[in-house]
Nucleic acid binder design. Structure first.
Length: 211
DNA sequence: CAAGAGATCATCT
DNA sequence: GATGATCTCTTGA
């Protein structure tokens, strides 16, 4: 099957123009997964309609030794999914308001994940506007809590298999865009790990979180 | 525009 | 009982 060219077929008009990522993608080293996710597409099929966004910002949480990673606190009910096989969603609730979407990486028993921090809205924009109660395109999904709200992602999706679910990542044939690596956001408590440049941001995207 | 506070609850001590 | 992989609104320059 020939991959559709973005120049001929505007991807935004379709929800099935790419290839769903396989488990082998998620089984790679977490930092590599985080980088390669840039320019891929987050797809959420939903009774109210599909939502699609181009991933422009990610963070890697690399394992139990990483003090910013929830799994550094041990294996608990919350972190259980990260200890399982790659390619599942780890969704948790924080600050009493927001859900965070992570993709579990690497082998079973190596707890690690990539946090999706921002996407550029592509399809289902009206749906996102309704869910966010907000009009401005740039603010719909430019943050990990915002994008979960825009895509109706909550803890009911925790543990979902991204290789066999209504939530998945699609490759639309776009090469990994130019990106910048910076320290992760909001992990000042993580000792020397707070300075690791595990946040990856697409250069010249106006849809990244503003920090 | 930058800085600060408040909102609110699941999770772990 | 404290805190957090956040966001939004208010305040003041």
């Amino acid at each position: 099957m020939v991959k559709p060219s973005r120049q001929i077929i505007p991807a935004k008009e379709f929800t099935n123009v790419g290839t769903k990522l396989l488990r082998s993608f998620y089984e790679q080293h977490t930092v590599d997964v985080a980088k390669q996710l840039l320019g891929k597409y987050l797809v959420r099929q939903h009774p109210k309609g599909a939502a699609v966004g181009r991933i422009v910002e990610t963070e890697a949480y690399v394992g139990p030794q990483d003090l910013a990673c929830h799994a550094s606190k041990g294996r608990t009910a919350r972190t259980e999914v990260m200890f399982g096989p790659a390619g599942h969603a780890y969704v948790y609730f924080i600050y009493g308001f927001y859900n965070m979407l992570n993709l579990v990486t690497e082998r079973k028993d190596h707890p690690a994940a990539v946090l999706i921090r921002a996407v550029e809205p592509v399809t289902g924009i009206d749906l996102m506007r309704t869910r966010r109660q907000l009009d401005k395109l740039r603010d719909l999904a430019s943050g990990p809590g915002k994008l979960c709200q825009a895509f109706a992602i909550d803890r009911s999706l925790n543990g979902e298999d991204l290789c066999d679910a209504t939530l998945y990542i699609e490759d639309r044939g776009e090469p990994t865009p130019q990106f910048q690596a910076t320290p992760r956001i909001g992990v000042d408590y993580a000792g020397k790990w707070k300075d690791k440049r595990y946040r990856f941001v697409v250069r010249s995207s106006e849809f990244v979180s503003k920090v």
